[in-house]
Design a protein around this nucleic acid. Structure first.
Lengths: 107, 107
DNA sequence: ATTACTATACAACAATTATTGAAATATTGA
DNA sequence: TCAATATTTCAATAATTGTTGTATAGTAAT
C-alpha cells in the first residue's frame, strides 16, 4: 500500500454516494449486486452510478464481472483490509501506545 | 462515527498534501508541529497549508492550540482510531470471516 | 510605538469532480 | 432479425476544491 493507492481509496470513500455503494456491497458480500440493483436500492440515476462505480473500480475498491448483459459488482474486502492495515500503521507510526490507548472505547 | 463524519475524514485523507501533513504530525505525536515548521518540511506555501490545515481541523483529524504567535498542530489519534474501527465494522459487516481471511498478510 | 515575524483571511483564478439526459454498445429471447 | 433490457460513453454544465499572491491581524521584543 503506497501513498498513491491510499489517497485513491480515501477518495473513493470520500463521497456519500460511493460510501453508500460500498457499504451496500459489503452487506451483500460475497455475492455482490448487479448495477441496476444498486441503482434501484440507492435511487441513483444509472449514469451517475456508472460514473461512481467506474471510479471505485479504477481505485480497486470494488471488482466487476460480466454476467450476460449484467455487470456484477463486489466489494474488494482484501483491499479494504490492506487500507485498514495502512491506516493503523500510519496512525501508530512511532507512537503505538498512544493510538490504542485513545480511541478503543468506540461502541 | 456516522456517515457524515466518516466521509469528512476520508476527504481529509484523500489529498496527497493532507495525507503528508497528517503522517508528519503522527510522526511527531504527541508534541505536534507549528504551522511554519510543517510548511518548511513539506515545502508548501503557507497560505495553501493553512487552507488544508483548516479543512483537517474542521473535520477533527487534527487539533490546534495557540502558542504565542505560533499555532501548534497535533494529529488526533483518537479520531483516527475511531475511523479504523468504523472501517473495520463496515468492511466486515455481516461477513467478518471473509474480511480477515483476505488481507491479513500485509507486512 | 515601531519593527519583525507568524499565521490566517480574502479574492481571483485554475482545475477537478459531480450530475444529468441522450446516444451508443452489447446481450437476451422471441 | 427485431424488440427489449442493461449498462456505459459522451457532451454539456453545475458545483466543488485547490492554488497563489496580497492584505490583514495578532504576538514579540526592542
Amino acid at each position: 500500500m503506497d501513498k498513491e493507492l491510499a489517497t485513491a481509496l480515501f477518495e473513493s470513500l470520500a463521497s456519500g454516494v460511493r460510501l453508500d455503494v460500498f457499504r451496500l456491497l459489503v452487506k451483500h458480500a460475497p455475492t455482490g449486486l448487479v448495477a441496476g440493483e444498486i441503482a434501484a436500492r440507492l435511487d441513483i440515476p444509472s449514469t451517475n452510478l456508472s460514473f461512481h462505480l467506474k471510479a471505485m473500480t479504477h481505485a480497486g475498491l470494488v471488482n466487476v464481472t460480466q454476467e450476460g448483459r449484467y455487470q456484477r459488482y463486489r466489494a474488494n474486502l482484501a483491499v479494504m483490509q490492506a487500507l485498514i492495515d495502512y491506516l493503523t500503521a500510519e496512525c501508530c507510526n512511532g507512537n503505538p501506545e498512544k493510538c490504542f490507548d485513545a480511541g478503543s472505547a468506540s461502541t
